[in-house]
């Protein structure tokens, strides 16, 4: 495994993290640093432990061994106040959106504002919500109930909610899965744009190699709980690792298939 340690300081660090569920080891001594201001993509086959990795990063799942640091705070040791302060600086999109069914689209997107930015007046709050919905290609969706949305629309509302506080770090669990190529492209552009304008650090879980190559500065591949390859995108796509090669070949085979092998979870 190539240990590329960029000069940029990491905002999130995983040191030798192991996580098991019963008998199976889902993460096996994973060490990863997510450098500030860069976009890191984590790819890997279904069941490789990508979503678990993301949950470990934010302290939703405790590692069985190893250390996780979020902005320098040890996620497993920090008292709730400290952990919550760190979490206010991140936004996260869950694989299935995790939207609140009892709230409208607008209320979902506004949720972090309503909880943490009480200082914002009604009009400013509404403006920010409308702006984020526009960014994800759903202008004017404020009053729609969640139940009326398609899978891809839910995902985009989840995106809007994840970025509404304009956090320093944004974690996306498969932002593109279930989206058509046009919307996928639009989301990729959004990521690039937010990175440029706001300097946001992204961690993106993806199956979509094309999108990954376009947006990521660094790519890591998880396979059976291990980080089998990690490095700058240009190096990654030329990796000699047979697992990486076969994964890339399958995904880059032209014409690029819209079929996502990991869908349906």
């Amino acid at each position: 495994m190539a240990d590329v340690s960029p000069v940029v300081p990491p905002v999130i660090e995983l040191l030798d993290v192991t996580r098991r569920f019963g008998e199976i080891t889902v993460l096996d001594s994973v060490t990863l640093r997510f450098p500030s201001g860069l976009t890191t993509a984590i790819i890997g086959p279904s069941g490789a432990g990508k979503s678990v990795l993301l949950k470990v990063l934010v302290g939703l799942l405790k590692p069985d061994a190893g250390t996780v640091r979020l902005f320098g705070h040890d996620v497993t040791e920090a008292p709730e106040r400290e952990l919550f302060a760190a979490r206010r600086r991140i936004g996260m999109l869950f694989q299935d959106g995790a939207l609140f069914d009892s709230l409208t689209v607008g209320e979902n997107v506004a949720f972090p504002l309503d909880q943490h930015r009480r200082d914002l007046a009604g009009a400013e709050r509404d403006r920010r919500v409308a702006e984020k919905l526009e960014w994800v290609g759903l202008p004017g969706f404020e009053d729609r109930p969640i139940a009326s949305l398609s899978g891809g629309q839910r995902k985009r509302v989840g995106l809007a909610r994840a970025i509404v506080l304009e956090p320093e770090v944004v974690l996306f669990d498969e932002p593109n899965s279930g989206l058509d190529p046009f919307t996928s492209d639009q989301i990729d552009d959004l990521v690039l744009d937010m990175k440029r304008r706001l300097g946001i650090t992204f961690v993106i879980i993806s199956h979509d190699i094309v999108g990954t190559v376009k947006v990521a500065d660094l790519v890591g591949m998880l396979y059976e709980g291990r980080l089998v390859e990690y490095g700058p995108t240009a190096d990654f796509v030329r990796s000699g690792n047979p697992i990486v090669k076969s994964f890339l070949r399958r995904n880059l085979a032209p014409p690029v298939s819209a079929f996502d092998p990991g869908e349906g979870r």
Partner: peptide, 21 residues
């Protein structure tokens, strides 16, 4: 049932990540 649904659909995880107990 509401809370259980929120639990299995990761909405409770989402609350945690949004720094809401």
């Amino acid at each position: 049932s509401q809370i259980a649904v929120m639990r299995i659909r990761e909405q409770i995880d989402a609350l945690e990540v949004m720094a809401v107990n």
